[in-house]
Design a protein around this nucleic acid. Structure first.
Lengths: 181, 181
DNA sequence: ATCGGTGCAAAGCTTTTGCAAAAGA
DNA sequence: TCTTTTGCAAAAGCTTTGCACCGAT
């Protein structure tokens, strides 16, 4: 039986998933595995975008400040249109172009990550904390972050055995909440 | 040292990667790992699309026959435009719409898989043989197929521990050929 | 003779870009 | 002031769709 193999390491209580596409663990009905961890809320830090931008030598403008604020506050993985809508709610003069340009800029300096989850526009998340992969709830669109050092190692081994160095990778699990019985 | 951990299981000689986006193993400078396997040419079977179509109750038309032939012969992971070009070379009256429609049809009956590799159009491959993941050469676009039972297991464990059942997943390694020294 | 499939053109959706005006530094 | 950045609108890239004609069964 599979669960017998699981070594329980921590048993943090995860918050129930909220509506929308929330960042962070939506829900965990069981403890995380020894070789993996779900990311919990304490891992969600607010990135200091302004410093990052200054270091990149770009100007800090009002639209950028607004968008950056939206990104900092986002607890989900919003797409450009969603970021645009939230930005417009703060400053109605902001344009979608500027959102896209800012996303590209931030991605360029490594401040955010772009995810092209299947069948939809790119979604973004602040590049804070450690690397993680994603489990996408195919019914709600919720995204749960997790990390498995074992899988990372195995990927490295496989790439090496094929004669390659990994530049980056993408691991996405698309799943459905197991209804508790 | 990492390579010390590798258990050699098979030592098939892989063909050198050809230009373009070839399906199957492009190249392997080292043997596959014990817990994983690269897919070799013998694993590439020609799917019987016509039977699949008949079973799906759709008509077998000339454009479909041509496109199916292209797909059967493809040793790479071509995108719609590439399939279109190859089809037009056989029958100049075929339209890009029909290519897209046929791709959707085949995807629907599970005869092909659609891959949305990053930064580009969807690429397709016949759904024959066992499940595998992909390593994409970021310099050439070549795709190497591999499979790791260990990683599959770990994914299952992780999803379960998070309260999910995996419906499908996506693992893509983006890498650069290690220059042999 | 049906009714599904096709080509063509147009539209849809996400993302990018040209340009003149606006605004950081 | 002097560039960089912005908003707008247009375009680009991929994919889908409406429609009238064509062709498999």
């Amino acid at each position: 039986m599979l669960s017998m193999q699981l070594q329980i390491v921590c048993n943090w209580t995860a918050p129930v998933a909220k509506a929308g596409h929330r960042r962070g663990p939506g829900f965990a009905s069981q403890p995380a595995l020894s070789h993996s961890r779900a990311m919990n809320e304490s891992m969600i830090q607010k990135p200091d975008y302004e410093t990052a931008l200054r270091e990149a030598g770009v100007r800090i403008t009002r639209p950028r400040r607004v968008i950056l604020g939206i990104l900092s506050d986002a607890e989900d993985h919003p797409d450009a249109m969603e970021i645009f809508k939230r930005s417009v709610a703060v400053d109605s003069s902001i344009s979608l172009s500027t959102v896209y340009r800012t996303m590209k800029l931030l991605e360029g300096i490594g401040a955010i990550h772009r995810h092209a989850f299947e069948g939809g526009p790119s979604r973004f998340e602040p590049a804070v904390g450690e690397h993680h992969d994603h489990l996408i709830d195919i019914e709600t669109g919720d995204v749960i972050e997790f990390h498995s050092e074992r899988i990372e190692e195995l990927q490295q081994e496989i790439a090496r055995s094929l004669g390659y160095d990994i530049v980056h990778h993408r691991l996405e699990l698309y799943g459905r909440r197991r209804r508790k019985k």
